[in-house]
Nucleic acid binder design. Structure first.
Lengths: 147, 147
DNA sequence: GACTAGATGAGAATGAATTGCAATATCAAG
DNA sequence: CTTGATATTGCAATTCATTCTCATCTAGTC
């Protein structure tokens, strides 16, 4: 009963999307997608490689990088370039959400904010642009305040 | 009349800030600061090195990188980590402004938006954080609009 | 002018990400 | 189910940005 390897409705959807984009559905790609899908945090390429190797034999890191950029272009995942550290990845819908990075311990908290997203759209529109993607990173320090 | 090399009130201010931070005022640091101060765009470290070499002899790229991080910690400049390209730098006050990156040609447009900055503060505060710095990058595509 | 800690230059080293190429595997067609 | 065309992979070597090492130099001080 290795149901970790069973196709789930979620990962099945990935396979369909890959095929529709004219791409082949390989075990490596599915392993990477499955890894991202079960990740609570925002793993780096190497972290993804490590976990993906758990479910599929020996995935080379070249494949991880190649797959990640394919998936990014496909719009299935999002890449997050942080200062002074390797890029991190997350599955995504097409929502515009931001990240708070705790400068103390590196914790990343996601948030969504309608007002902020609306401003992004408006600002871009004012300048004659249409938004492709937004990256918001708020580096912040935990306030000593009352719990 | 090589007034490009004259100390300007602006660059003088830099010297004071360096000294106040207990750092030495070197010709390399001033050349880099002068370069940034006269840059209209957001140059990369290597572009800065190139231009700075124009005003000061042979500045090594190690020095450029070292100086840039010193200046960043000092809060005099800001580093902008973009996807798939070297970091870019800009002089900065402590304002929270964003950048629109034209996905077509790479043009970077700066903007300020009170409402957006206010949201950043509020969002962080809600989660018990105080903002250190914000990075907003809106990747956008030029609208075919009427011109 | 001399001293000393901080700063620099040159180049080697690191680490993330990309690429070339031969081997392999997917998927459509028979 | 077998085959063939070709997309994809693994491996290793490579690129590129950035950092580090260390001997030399220099700003700031006395």
């Amino acid at each position: 009963m290795t149901d970790a390897l069973e196709p789930s409705p979620k990962t099945d959807g990935f396979a369909v999307m890959l095929r529709e984009a004219g791409l082949r559905v390989t075990s490596q790609r599915m392993a990477i997608l499955r890894t991202l899908s079960s990740a609570e945090d925002h793993p780096t390429a190497e972290e993804i490689a490590g976990k993906a190797r758990g479910s599929d034999a020996s995935i080379s890191h070249a494949t991880v990088y190649r797959t990640l950029s394919v998936l990014e272009e496909l719009g299935l995942i999002r890449k997050l370039s942080l200062e002074n550290s390797p890029a991190r990845y997350e599955l995504c819908g097409d929502d515009d959400h931001g990240h708070i990075v705790d400068v103390g311990d590196g914790t990343i908290i996601e948030f969504e904010d309608e007002a902020m997203s609306a401003r992004h759209q408006a600002i871009a529109a004012d300048l004659g642009y249409e938004v492709v993607r937004c990256v918001t990173i708020i580096e912040a320090r935990k306030k000593p305040g009352p719990v």
